[in-house]
């Protein structure tokens, strides 16, 4: 554990090879304070990750938690089963431990939400 005196954690971001981002295939590591979102910290570190609403609603920023712990105090659409399945909305997620995440998981999370009959997955993939 590398928690510092100001409650800052090390977050590692894995960008999948198949991502359309310039950072596809890269891994980035940066510090995130306990009151900072992972998205904001990533963008401050120069890693531009996808996110639209930034209110934990549209799920475009979905990621998978590989290791560590995060909280979502302000997410507008994030359920217990989402957390149990390891999904994270990095626009509102704040670390509570050193964490590793695979980002750009929108399509996968959309399908997961659809399978659980939850929006927006059920409304976008129902045809």
């Amino acid at each position: 554990m590398t928690q510092s005196s100001d409650d800052t954690w090390t977050v590692t971001i894995v960008v999948p090879e198949e991502s359309s981002l310039d950072e596809a295939g890269e891994t980035h590591e940066f510090a995130v304070s306990e009151n900072e979102t992972i998205l904001a910290a990533a963008r401050s570190a120069g890693v531009w990750l996808t996110a639209d609403c930034q209110q934990g609603w549209c799920i475009t920023c979905a990621a998978r938690l590989v290791d560590g712990d995060v909280v979502h105090p302000n997410a507008r659409r994030y359920d217990t089963e989402d957390r149990e399945a390891g999904y994270v909305l990095i626009c509102t997620a704040k670390p509570r431990a050193d964490s590793t995440l695979v980002v750009e998981q929108y399509d996968e999370f959309l399908e997961f939400r659809a399978a659980n009959n939850k929006p927006p997955g059920n409304s976008k993939l129902s045809d």
Binding site: D52, C53, Q55, W57, C58, T60, R76, R77, P119, P120, N122, S123, K124, S126
Partner: peptide, 9 residues
């Protein structure tokens, strides 16, 4: 469906 897929809360 239209409301559920709206990109803002």
């Amino acid at each position: 469906d239209f409301a559920d897929r709206a990109s803002c809360p």
